[in-house]
Structures are given as C-alpha cells and as structure tokens.
Design a protein around this nucleic acid. Structure first.
Length: 160
DNA sequence: GCCAACGTTGGC
DNA sequence: GCCAACGTTGGC
C-alpha cells in the first residue's frame, strides 16, 4: 500500500465537499509530475487531504483511493475549465482516480506545525511546494495522523 | 492580493 | 535544444 498527499483549495473543493459526495473524481490535474503520481495510485492507497491556499494551509483529514486512474473526461470537453485539446480520447494525456472520504482529523495539522518537525523535513510538501499530488512515506503518514490526533484502529493504517 | 518559484510554450 | 516570455501555484 502506498501513501499520498492530495492538495485542493478548500474554496474550490474541500474535505467537507468530499464527505458530502462520498466519492469524488480527482480530475483537472494538468501537471505531468502530478499526473504520474495519480497513475501510480492503486485502489486502497491512502491519502492526506491537504487544504492549500488557506490560512494556515493544513492537512484536514484522510481519503482513500477507490478506483485507479482512468482518462480524465474533463480534458475532452471544450466547455470544461480544464479542457485540453491536446488530450485525445484515443491517446489520453490526463488521468484521474476516484477518491473516497475517510475522516476528518480531530485537529488539523498545519503547514507551520509540519515544518517544525525535524523528521518531516524531507517531505515533498516542504521541499516542492508546487506539486499538487505527491508521495508520502508510511512513517510520514503515520506521524501526520498522530499530530492530527487520530486514533488508529487495531492493526494500524491498513485497517482504516 | 502580491510575488517567488516553478512549469510550459514557442521562436529561433 | 536553448532560453525568453508567459502562465500557474501556493505561501505569506
């Protein structure tokens, strides 16, 4: 199982929105590095749901990958904000997985708090601020959960 | 809302 | 294939 961090601007799409929807399509990603990460996701992988451009930026809770990435339909539709004429249905350029709501942390984990933790200084979040879909190590993932006050079920992360 | 950092585009 | 110009992201 792999771990990820998914960024979203809460004004556009928040963890509350995902909770309401239950399952969402992580579409609209138009960056190759982020795209490659989306394609590397497997069903059952876990994600930290991060609210960017909020004050302060923070991890709000957890989500789960429930369907591996498939061609992003919003790239084919000229009416869509994220329409990309260079993505051909026969040779799609952009992909999106389905993501389901898991939980809100009892307490949000802010970016400044993360930056204070020495063992988290290698996180992509800290070193590549602009990447919107990024890998997280198991130990980083566990630490963030702990900082968020989340009680892990018996058996740990795999039983979430 | 500003702007630094970074990614992408396209002329040459 | 270089790099200037431009666009976007996201912290502050």
């Amino acid at each position: 199982m792999k771990y990820w961090l998914l960024k979203s601007e809460p004004d556009v799409y928040s963890l509350d929105d995902l909770k309401t929807e239950g399952t969402g399509h992580w579409d609209g990603v138009r960056n190759y590095q982020a795209r490659n990460n989306l394609q590397a996701m497997k069903k059952g992988d876990l994600g930290l749901f991060y609210h960017s451009r909020s004050n302060p930026p923070h991890v709000a809770g957890l989500c789960k990958i429930t369907k591996k990435a498939y061609p992003d339909p919003t790239a084919f539709d000229p009416k869509e904000k994220y329409y990309d004429p260079k993505s051909d249905p026969d040779n799609p350029r952009w992909f999106c997985p389905d993501v389901s709501y898991l939980c809100h942390f009892p307490e949000i984990v802010t970016l400044p708090a993360i930056k204070e933790v020495k063992s988290l200084s290698d996180m992509v979040l800290v070193n590549n601020t602009r990447l919107s879909v990024q890998p997280v190590t198991a130990s980083e993932f566990r630490k963030i959960c702990k900082m968020g006050g989340l009680e892990l079920p018996p058996g740990g992360l795999k039983n979430l």
